[in-house]
Amino acid sequence: MALMPKRVKFRKSQKGRVRGNATRGNYVAFGEYGLQALEPGRISAQTIEAGRVVASQMVKGGGKVYIRVFPQKSVTAIPAETRMGKGKGEIEFWAAVVKPGTILYEISGLSEEVARETLARVSHKMPIKCRFVGRRPTI
């Protein structure tokens, strides 16, 4: 089940550019370990789902997986061999816009070793470079 918004103000959006670093959602907030994006990019709803499935298979109910990104942006495409013009294409998929530093997934209830292995497998599904992170120390 791919994620997408329930209600939107506008169905289609402009492409835009991913600039700058994440200033929000850039620390582990709910779990104990997380997967952090190191590059800017778009992560499609299908990819987010693929990551969730891999994480759930590894966790097997022994822990909890949190998804920290949501595909808010619609991406359109025009069919192949179509002449230019005639307006914007139809929605192809929904994607989450990700900046460097964004936490994509979080995991709790697992040992660091298992969490590292789980998130490494999830990172293989991602179209961008990611790294394993822990909680920031409270001082």
């Binding site: 089940m1 918004p5 329930k6 209600r7 939107v8 506008f10 169905r11």
Partner: peptide, 20 residues
């Protein structure tokens, strides 16, 4: 205890979002 998505939920998800 987290429920896996059912078929009905999947069908619901295929539909496009409502436009405000």
């Amino acid at each position: 205890t987290t429920a896996e998505p059912t078929e009905a939920a999947a069908e619901e998800a295929v539909a496009q979002p409502e436009v405000i």
